[in-house]
């Protein structure tokens, strides 16, 4: 099956084409999701939403980028949408606790319960700290850092996904590292 036949199959909503899409991309999409959202259940839910979005929006895919790039762009947007929603809920919970309503406040204020099966036990606390710090970064820096350092994508791939030049990606990465250094300094100063 050629790439064009495959995309035509996706456009016509053929089950065989979606079967192939899932075989090719389920692990990669899930890996990106768990890089942004370090919780296996949440990451699987987001990955499923990604494939539903592909199913609904395949008509909009004009072939200007690679199919994989388009799928990863949807994945990144879905993850950011999930994090934004969860962060809003946390802030709302915090407001309610100030106003005296009976909603228990999550002390970590992180948007999900950390459950990343890839983290080895001795690194659990450090990983939690790092994911917490990444969540404090501005969104553009968070995306570039997560895709490169956690998901292991190259600058070229990130440039295609985010529709930014490689120079901008490098600059965002540099600022992300600098900000993470500051955030971790602040964290360890207050926790030692």
């Amino acid at each position: 099956m050629t790439e064009n036949e495959f995309i035509a199959g996706l456009r016509n909503h053929h089950a065989s084409a979606y079967g192939k899409l899932l075989d090719d991309f389920q692990q990669k999409v899930f890996a990106t999701c768990i890089s942004f959202v370090p919780n296996k259940e949440d990451a699987e839910d987001i990955a499923q939403e990604v494939f539903v979005e592909v199913f609904k929006s395949i008509e909009k895919f004009k072939g200007q980028s690679k199919l994989s790039t388009w799928v990863y762009r949807i994945t990144t947007n879905k993850c950011l949408e999930f994090i934004r929603k969860r962060n809003t809920k946390k802030r709302f919970g915090f407001m309610q606790s100030i106003l005296g309503n009976e909603i228990p406040l999550d002390k970590t204020s992180y948007f999900t319960e950390m459950n990343h099966p890839g983290v080895i036990l001795e690194n659990k606390e450090k990983s939690q700290t790092l994911f917490y710090a990444i969540n404090q970064l501005p969104e553009a820096q968070k995306v570039v850092f997560t895709l490169h350092k956690v998901d292991g994508k190259s600058y070229q791939e990130i440039s295609a996904i985010t529709e930014k030049s490689i120079a901008s990606v490098e600059s965002l990465m540099f600022r992300a590292k600098k900000n993470l250094q500051k955030l971790l300094e602040y964290f360890y100063k207050n926790n030692n």
Partner: peptide, 10 residues
């Protein structure tokens, strides 16, 4: 710490 992350399978 991210260098020691193991692959998680779907």
């Amino acid at each position: 710490v991210l260098e020691n992350l193991e692959t998680v399978h779907v």
